[in-house]
Design a protein around this nucleic acid. Structure first.
Lengths: 197, 197
DNA sequence: CCCCTATACGGACCCTAGTCCGCTTGACTG
DNA sequence: CAGTCAAGCGGACTAGGGTCCGTATAGGGG
């Protein structure tokens, strides 16, 4: 009876596992940049990383999962700015200001990573909503809406995030050829209205 | 020089093609009902319809396309009610009334066909936005928003439709376990606010 | 009624996502 | 330092989506 598992404290990753994780993420990032996300198969990633397919899947679940993981670092920056950065994005500003700052910052992030975002979110149905990242943003918006005295913060947060889906933004910008400024303005108007009681 | 192609008038479907189209749609509808959409492969549909896979793909493009086609009839009912039915869904009522009626009617339709809707919309990225049905609803909403004097009807219409995506509705109802009444109320509030100038 | 060709058919084929399981190895123990 | 074994590895395998192209036929023209 060596190690009673400690709840909530998963044992640390083995050294080879950590090494492979890094290799895979680096390989994926490189290939995605070179050939575009759609032009890269999971076998390609595995080969480039010098690991077997099984390793890839055990670690990341599926292609959407890999996309999420590659995005993770950049997403973390945004999360950090929200949690600890200067206002109005970070704590300190009034809730409606923070909401607008969030929308601006999220859009910047989304435009920078659009292709990858689409893959990560649409890899399988519901992938977007299952990711921890989505849950984090949702909670953030929910709290801000509550502070702003909105009617139904729980649903309201979802309604703020719905039009921030990668696929939807791509549709607006690429197929409908709307200007990013116009899109931003429209979304800012939307959250302003959702934040009213 | 027999038949100069008449622009916009594609030649009528050959008899065998029409027959196969019907067979495929009937087979798909039957299988989807029996086993759920996810549990049915394209080979299954082809076999059940008694046609080759090539036929299936030539006619419907991909699985999302087949889903859209199966939904089409039910969607057409909704379209008809919008274009020719009694107010407030049909013509005659003031634009904001019609908008709300549209949202109610669309939600009824969506809940009834949720699984199929998700497949049709998420089969491939952007599938939802490429379908003619989406464009039809978008135009409808756009005109109503314009009549209601909203700020930016073009973008506004997209923002009304964004939270009506099947995948998003499934997320709200299934994962978040929100009541359909609450969802409807929230969406009605949203369109009411988007329809203001 | 026969011929001709655009249209459509169908299933063999390819590719990629995702699974499975026997083998290997990191890391801890005595 | 050797023994132990859970964690991890990897690539063969399966299944399903989507393509291709040689063959068959509907349906109009002569």
């Amino acid at each position: 009876m060596r190690d009673l598992p400690v709840l909530g404290q998963p044992p640390p990753e083995r050294a080879d596992a950590a090494r492979n994780r890094r290799r895979i993420l680096e390989a994926a990032e490189r290939l995605f940049k070179d050939r575009g996300v759609a032009g890269v198969s999971m076998d390609d990633v595995a080969a480039e990383a010098g690991v077997g397919k099984g390793t890839l899947y055990r670690r990341f679940g599926d292609k959407a999962g890999l996309g999420i993981a590659v995005l993770d670092e950049r997403e973390r920056e945004l999360q950090d700015a929200i949690l600890r950065g200067p206002p109005p994005l970070g704590p300190g500003a009034p809730p409606r200001k923070r909401l607008k700052a969030f929308v601006r910052a999220y859009l910047d992030y989304a435009w920078r990573n659009l292709e990858l975002l689409v893959v990560a979110e649409t890899g399988s149905p519901g992938a977007r909503y299952r990711s921890g990242v989505y849950a984090g943003f949702r909670r953030h918006v929910e709290i801000l809406l509550m502070d702003a005295g909105a009617d139904d913060p729980v649903l309201g947060a979802e309604l703020v995030l719905a039009p921030l889906a990668g696929d939807f933004l791509r549709h607006l910008a690429v197929e409908r050829e709307l200007e990013r400024d116009a899109i931003r303005a429209g979304l800012l108007r939307l959250v302003a209205r959702l934040a009213r009681s």
